[in-house]
Amino acid sequence: MADLVENVLREAAEKESKYKTTEVNKDIDLVIDVGNLMTSDTNPFNAKSSRSNREKYLKDLARDNTQLLLNSIWKLPTQNVDNIVVAQLPDPSTPIPREKPVPKEKALTKWEKYAKLKGIQNKKKSRLVWDEPSQSYKPRWGYNRSGDDTKEWLVEVPGSADPNEDQFAKRKDAKKERIAKNELQRLRNIARTNKSKVPGVGLTPTDAPSKEYLGKALSVAKTSTASIGKFTENLPKEKHAKFQGKKRKFQSNIGNMKDEMSHQLNILNTLGQDVPIVDKNRAANLHIKEMEESRAKQKREDPDGARKKKLTGKRSKHGRLATMKRNLKKGRGGGRGGKSGGRR
């Protein structure tokens, strides 16, 4: 028994002497960032031994530090991936600057804003749809789409349509128009998010122009010359165009004493008032918007519950809104004042 113990001990001692140790002693512990495979050693640099044989000194130093880093890596939890041992690294602890700033959240488009307010959610549609004529699945949109009406070789002329009208060209034009409108809306959305001036839609072509539309088109056409319509002649009996652009108005250089006084007095009065002036219309609109938003939120969170409520309580809610608006119109202050006024 004693022999056996001795043998085992001797073997262990031999083994230890055969291999060099993995232990390293340092006066000041290294700061090890395992996530970046990085160590920083703040122990004083031995200038004397460095001068005698710098390369050897640096190599020994590097060896010791590497040993310490790898010791800590070998302690990490490991995993077998395709018969390869990998260690799970923790997150890097050294803060390192980003390459580019943090991405800003994408601004909502006008429609997205509206959909959010109303609680409208996107329905997921499959990419492929069954195409009856070809008896196969085809993309819903894009190249080789199912039900592509621009690829038809025969188009029926509707009874009410002009027989000489090219129905093929009409379809193509309509598509072009839709694309142009979409592009315009995209640009307007960009302009809105950049807070620059949002251009108006202008005149979009229609099949059945109304009287108002024609008037607008006429005035636009008259001013669409190089001289902004300065030399455009009027037709006999033509009425004055309604849709003139707004002219800028400036105050006169020589001040009007009366206006000046009233203007200043107005400012003074508003400053002296204890009770803040409330824009009732704005307040009412804000309140209505808030309510709509909360309802949309409710709808989003609990679609079934909202539907049930809608069935029973739609009318009363509508009524409440209407009365509130009425009250606000009547009363001087908030909703409360309005109620009391009504009682009187």
């Binding site: 890596i73 390869i84 041992v85 990998v86």
Partner: peptide, 26 residues
């Protein structure tokens, strides 16, 4: 550190550790 660290990774192959860069200020 930024210059030499390369790709930020979650796992490392233990046998793949084969390069040391030492930067000494003295």
């Amino acid at each position: 550190a930024d210059f030499f660290r390369g790709v930020v990774i979650k796992q490392i192959r233990l046998q793949g550790l084969e390069h040391v860069i030492m930067i000494t200020a003295a």
